[in-house]
Design a protein around this nucleic acid. Sequence first.
DNA 1: TAAGTATGTGAACAACGTTAACATACCAAG
DNA 2: CTTGGTATGTTAACGTTGTTCACATACTTA
Lengths: 202, 202
Amino acid sequence: MATTRKSARTYHHGDLKAALVVAAAAIVRTSGLDALTLREVARRTGVSAAAPYRHFADRRALVAAVAERGFVRLGEALTAAMKSGGGRGGFKQVALAYVHFGLANPAEYRVMFGPEMADTRDFPSLRETGRGVLGGVAETVSHLQKAGVIGPGDPHLMSVALWSTLHGLVLLVLDGQTEGVEDSAALVEEATRIVMFGMAPR
Amino acid sequence: MATTRKSARTYHHGDLKAALVVAAAAIVRTSGLDALTLREVARRTGVSAAAPYRHFADRRALVAAVAERGFVRLGEALTAAMKSGGGRGGFKQVALAYVHFGLANPAEYRVMFGPEMADTRDFPSLRETGRGVLGGVAETVSHLQKAGVIGPGDPHLMSVALWSTLHGLVLLVLDGQTEGVEDSAALVEEATRIVMFGMAPR
DNA sequence: TAAGTATGTGAACAACGTTAACATACCAAG
DNA sequence: CTTGGTATGTTAACGTTGTTCACATACTTA
């Protein structure tokens, strides 16, 4: 990529590619994915409607870039939470951080896991980044197993199961499917409790 | 609705509204939500591009109808699974039925929970139907609590937590985010096991 | 039979994704 | 410094979409 050279204004625009992604993310955040049109992105960035095609093959590619940005940010949030402590408390910390990210960035989160990105074959970079997040979770699980906080079992399998709960929780709350639940924090609490201790009587 | 009268061919088309929903669902199933265009639906049904507007306010309304159809079918699948037996085995049966429905009807499932339907304010009927499914799950949880299969706690909260796991699991598998997991049946097994007994050592 | 309403048609509009031909800014080699 | 090549951006155009409006037709009901 020659787009990220030295100066910011030496070229036609400087760094259009990055600017487009930022503008796209802004649109998604404020108006949702449906409002994300290539022409609007171009308009906001002050370029012609065809300009984005020099940097993205098509609309999906731009959406993928937004999604990838989201995965990176999610990864950062989780890493930060992990550092804040290990053991059982750390576990809950990470879970809360995950859910918090989803609830704080609804539209972005949807793009990351939405139907448009279901087929990630075309976007290996996106796939890699996403895989990295899961890898981090698996690492945490494995670590907690050695610490005795978590029982035996395939760490990878357990990671996905854990991820499922958090992921589903975020989406259900975002979908407004959890009406009747007054305190969403209590919901997260309960969900992590169940993941930890199960629903069966102990 | 005067559309569902007696005969099927007495009127202009007979029952266009239902035919449109069926055609729409077929498109979603085979080609995904993006391919669901009002014009294509009209084309397949053999009517003009404007005809659907006599039955649906806009594209979203048609999508909502497809989603509602999905919720009804999911409800039926769950009810059938519940009848197949109570107790701990019945619990697993319902969980498997839920996941199976999602994996067997990927596109439809996505429509039901996709971004387009996130704001269900405009579609009270859809909201009601969806609520009904959760109600069924809550009922099952409550029932199992009395049977001693499930420990104490707010049934509604526990239902949502359980639902989260199943929902997230379906979506992660559909997203292909579970690569490295050879056996997806084992994944479901593990997830339900965790929901039941938790990840902590017992 | 006549009036009224529900349903479907045809043509039109703006907006969109995408492409192609063209124009310009930058970079590197002579 | 010039010259050529490449990366980047523009303009114009095409086909498709959602949606609306005026109009036509089928059915129902009095």
